[in-house]
Design a binder for these strands. Structure first.
Lengths: 343, 343
DNA sequence: CAGAAAAATTATCGCGCGTAAAGAAAATTC
DNA sequence: GAATTTTCTTTACGCGCGATAATTTTTCTG
């Protein structure tokens, strides 16, 4: 804790009485220097608390041991949570993480990848925007750095994809709902930008048809990422205009469902599977708030932990393999029905 | 879009037929070179799409034009939203943003600031953890870089603080609730780590005493950042044990309130200000979900936009002033009551 | 204690870029 | 057209560190 600040490794080497390359080796791997020198370095470290400049380090390093994480919208708590768990897994594995959000915009997604390029990351975990992604740009990026896509697939880009099996998602919820009552209609945005939404729409259609049932869609307006608002306003309208074809509503995702539940509450519709209930509502994703809605939301859970763990591990394997797999790996995890009180 | 990749500025200068220092000047400010050379550079840019390495640029630059943003917990949608707006304001002002989350842990907060140090940011907007922050470390950091604290103040650290006036927050909600019905009890965590929570506790006590009323506290267990869970479980228990001293509950923040509302719903307590209602519930913060709870949550709104705008502008002013103000600036914005249906 | 092995040192280059100074070329002025 | 100003090029160095090779020093082995 000396007053005189150490400006760089050279100065620190001087006060430690050890040559700079040895200091460099120490920070690369403390065990690579002799025990006595390590002690001397660590003693000096306590007196002067110096830390090497991470970006200067990475500039000329073979392996930066930095993992880039890009999510489409960080203000969405689902992605906030995913990013957090991934980041911690990386740190636990001895990597550092650099987090970027695409803010739902193509330009930001490109900007994030350009920034990452400057970091020369050892690997990248990318949840692309989807329909709004610049597919060619991303493909080129994936050529340059070991990249694993997750959450949303944009088809044949990157060395691997890890996510949820939307078919499994929807078939589980449709199976449960049809088994225990009315067949569900599907409540969704008219023009989703998200590949998962589209996959779920297909999944719903197929699951219904497989049971000899006619698919029913309730499509609401709304742009961008204000899903709750879309669900709420679209829900109010659908209820007022009696546009709901059944008493069971399956929402494309939980954020829509949260808005829809608010619309039901406000419209005086009691939601649940009890006898006094007018409507059953279910969602997909197991949003962090899903257990705190009124009533708590029956939904289908991502295996967050599993997906993020598999994503990280796939990436590490990819890095070890030198950046490419023989064939693109695709792993989709089945979902788990979370039975709560709304359906 | 030539096949041969440009690896650095030197190579790009070669293919553009212009010297590297001039290219460097161009990227620093396109208007600083003659129109004809700018045209030549931009033409080459289209053929080869090159972008300078941002971290190498910053390494030896006087002004990096990078703003560091550190929030205590990014998976919290409130901070996600704040971070997003701040980031966009920085970009609009011609700065780039580097975002970090402290994940609710001191070690991560320090790690974030260390990473920022390597970036040599032009300025930093820091929302500290609060009680868990390493105050000395942060103070030292603030000496080194122009730093504006926001959201939470940790007393006399940094050149400025911008946030909400917790007194105004609580006095508004207490005023409204006492005027329109029962005096509220205060629902909060037993050991909040957050300075705002502590300030609100004091604010509540004073607001009640100013009206000649006895403050009433309902304190629930719970650690970390799972506020909804704490509110839910604590709420269930308080309701079951009839520990609520009044029919009006003022929650320290909206996330607690969201959990508490779920507990009310599950306990069969109707919340709202109508005649058939057993309980009134209000919160603080105007969480993004507050308008979609059942019933919609009466709360007190941050002026998100105002706070983030003021924070960013204060920081820019600080940067222009050379990194320090004569006296520490403190700006606390009053809050706005958001009247909804829960109280 | 000598000899071999291990570790640290010196020296020098590289990463991708910023920056400053001096001179050459081009554009502007009168 | 010459004199001036602006702009560009050249050259050289710096940022903070990684990496390598050639030496020197230290440590280990017997």
């Amino acid at each position: 804790m000396d007053g005189d600040k150490i400006r760089n490794m050279e100065e620190f080497a001087a006060v430690a009485g050890i040559s700079r390359p040895t200091i460099s080796k120490y920070f690369h791997d403390p065990d690579s220097v002799k025990k006595s020198t390590r002690a001397r370095i660590e003693e000096a470290l306590e007196r002067h608390d110096y830390r090497p400049n991470i970006f200067a380090m990475n500039q000329n390093r073979k392996l930066t041991r930095t993992i880039g994480i890009v999510v489409p919208y960080l203000a969405d708590p689902v992605f906030g949570e995913i990013a957090r768990t991934i980041e911690q897994r990386c740190i636990k594995a001895g990597y550092r993480a650099a987090l970027f959000s695409s803010h739902g915009e193509q330009a930001s997604e490109i900007e994030a990848l350009e920034s990452l390029r400057s970091l020369r990351p050892s690997g990248v975990l990318l949840a692309p925007l989807g329909r709004f992604s610049d597919r060619d740009f991303i493909a080129e990026f994936c050529q340059e750095f070991p990249t694993v896509l997750f959450d949303r697939d944009i088809g044949d880009v990157g060395a691997a994809f890890v996510g949820s099996d939307n078919m499994s998602f929807v078939s589980q919820s449709v199976e449960y709902l049809t088994r225990t009552g009315d067949a569900p209609c599907f409540f969704e945005m008219k023009n989703p930008s998200n590949p998962n939404s589209i996959a779920r729409r297909h999944g719903y259609r197929e699951a219904m048809q497989a049971r000899g049932l006619e698919p029913m869609f309730v499509q609401v307006d709304g742009e961008g990422w204000e899903f709750e608002r879309s669900g709420y306003e679209g829900g109010l309208r659908a209820i007022a205009n009696r546009e709901l074809p059944t008493h069971t509503v399956l929402c494309s995702n939980d954020r829509l469902a949260i808005g829809f539940l608010a619309a039901c509450y406000e419209s005086g519709l009691r939601v649940g599977r009890g006898s006094g209930c007018a409507l059953r509502v279910a969602g997909h994703d197991d949003h962090p708030h899903a257990r705190f809605t009124c009533p708590s939301l029956t939904t289908v859970a991502h295996e967050y932990d599993t997906v993020s763990e598999c994503g990280v591990e796939t990436l590490f394997e990819l890095i070890e393999q030198g950046g490419s797999f023989d064939t693109r790996r695709e792993k989709r995890f089945p979902a788990r029905l979370m039975l709560r009180n709304s359906a």
